[in-house]
């Protein structure tokens, strides 16, 4: 072993004056720097989406399925009144595409106050290609990696996630993440059953009416905690019995009146059964 290392170092030492030495060292340095950057840098430098063929494929898909609203170069289209027909997409990032297309919100079935969730129209490869194309238009948040939105958290972090959720999310999404109404026919959808990746992307990109919760507002750790709180709530049993929609006292009131209806029914039943002495035997 020792002999081997000595031989290599000896060889290297002998060749250090070679005319190829400088370019090789430079090349190695560049490779290490680039590799380290790729491995350690924030995820928005997604190496995979840089692939030119993927981008080209994404562009082809984009021209067929998206350009009619977003414009041929994703520059956006304005309506006659100057409103957004389809917004410009430069800089929205791969995360926005992955969320909108991955949850079926894009392409929209019809214009409306809000894009509705439906089965996705594209498969995973196509979504990746579309995301790569849009990401190539300008820097934006990239698709988060699995360890960002999932993984074990301590109970303390989970409780903290609950606090973040109640402070930032319940006002629109409701205490049980069952969703709620917003002005003008818009709404905050239910978060129950939404994948952790999509919740993370939604916080990162602020789709539809949702504000952007950038990493400066909610750190990646905070986001992860919120997601683990939501996921643990989903698996939590309904301690009190049927949840009645988890939408608060309105549905409870409806069931209270059903209960009174039942009791009135019992009153009718009791009154219909009067004392036995009065009953005549049927012939």
């Amino acid at each position: 072993m020792r002999l081997l290392t000595r031989r290599i170092s000896g060889g290297l030492s002998a060749k250090r004056r070679s005319r190829f030495a400088a370019p090789v060292v430079l090349l190695l340095g560049l490779l290490i720097t680039g590799g380290a950057y790729a491995a350690l840098a924030p995820a928005n430098a997604n190496t995979k989406t840089d692939d030119a063929t993927t981008i080209a494929k994404g562009r082809a898909l984009f021209l067929v399925g998206c350009a009619s609203c977003h414009g041929k170069n994703a520059e956006g289209i304005l309506t006659v009144r100057g409103k957004n027909y389809g917004p410009a997409l430069a800089g929205v990032g791969a995360a926005a595409v992955d969320f909108q297309v991955g949850t079926g919100r894009m392409p929209m079935a019809q214009p409306g106050v809000q894009a509705l969730q439906k089965p996705p129209a594209y498969n995973a490869d196509e979504i990746e290609a579309l995301a790569a194309y849009v990401a190539s238009l300008g820097t934006g948040p990239s698709i988060p990696s699995a360890d960002q939105y999932s993984g074990k958290v301590s109970n303390q972090e989970l409780v903290e996630g609950g606090e973040f959720f109640r402070t930032n999310c319940t006002a629109c999404h409701n205490f049980a993440a069952a969703g709620g109404a917003l002005p003008g026919g818009k709404f905050a959808p239910s978060l129950v059953g939404v994948s952790a990746k999509h919740i993370y992307e939604a916080m990162l990109t602020g789709p539809q009416q949702m504000p952007v919760f950038s990493n400066g507002v909610l750190t990646p750790q905070d986001k992860k905690e919120i997601i683990s709180y939501l996921k643990s709530s989903e698996t939590e049993p309904n301690y009190g019995g049927f949840a009645l929609g988890s939408i608060g006292p309105v549905s409870e009131g409806m069931f209270a009146w059903l209960g009174v209806g039942v009791l009135v029914g019992f009153a009718v039943w009791i009154a219909a059964h009067t004392s036995r002495s009065k009953k005549k035997k049927e012939a």
């Binding site: 006002a171 999404h173 608060g248």
Partner: peptide
């Protein structure tokens, strides 16, 4: 309760 928080579907009981 935390005065800084609120939830959608904040309603009183039916009465």
């Amino acid at each position: 309760y935390n005065p800084a928080e609120v939830t959608a579907g904040s309603q009183p009981d039916w009465y």
